[in-house]
């Protein structure tokens, strides 16, 4: 059975690229374009195995979303995908308990490796 990944991202080009690459890699992909929809999906779909999220999102920020996931689904692995490569942003993300941090636009091979590694470690 394919493992399911939830992508939370509001740039359609990035979403399309992630969907394309991760589907090719053999995953099922679900997309939410904002944090509120992501919470609804996580509430209803218990088969999600990994969350990939931007930090700057409409309605609920990525930070709030990550805090919510850590409080309610502590075992859910999270990869942050952000345009920022500023050290403090990366450090803050890891302090919140995310498992990995990838900069947009992502390197396709690196994404595959990091997703595989993160999912397999859970």
């Amino acid at each position: 059975m394919k493992k399911k990944i939830l992508i939370i991202e509001d740039n359609p080009m990035v979403v399309k690229s992630l969907e394309f690459k991760l589907t090719k890699d053999g995953y099922d992909v679900v997309v939410a374009e904002d944090g509120r929809k992501a919470l609804d999906i996580l509430k209803e779909d218990k088969s999600i195995r990994l969350v990939i999220t931007d930090l700057m999102l409409p309605f609920i920020t990525g930070t709030e979303l990550i805090e919510h996931i850590r409080n309610h689904i502590p075992d859910m692995p999270i990869i942050v995908l952000s345009t920022s490569n500023q050290e403090e942003v990366i450090t803050d993300a890891f302090m919140m308990g995310v498992n990995d941090f990838i900069t947009k636009p992502f390197s396709p091979n690196e994404l595959s490796l990091r997703v595989k590694r993160t999912i397999e470690s859970y």
């Binding site: 740039n11 080009m13 700057m56 345009t83 500023q86 947009k104 636009p105």
Partner: peptide
């Protein structure tokens, strides 16, 4: 912030860099 990766994915350095400046 939202459009910066779109410029980057099309290899447009100027658009990406100006978006970065606006953001930060």
């Amino acid at each position: 912030h939202n459009v910066k990766p779109s410029f980057a994915m099309l290899g447009n350095e100027k658009g990406k860099s100006v978006c970065q400046t606006i953001c930060y």
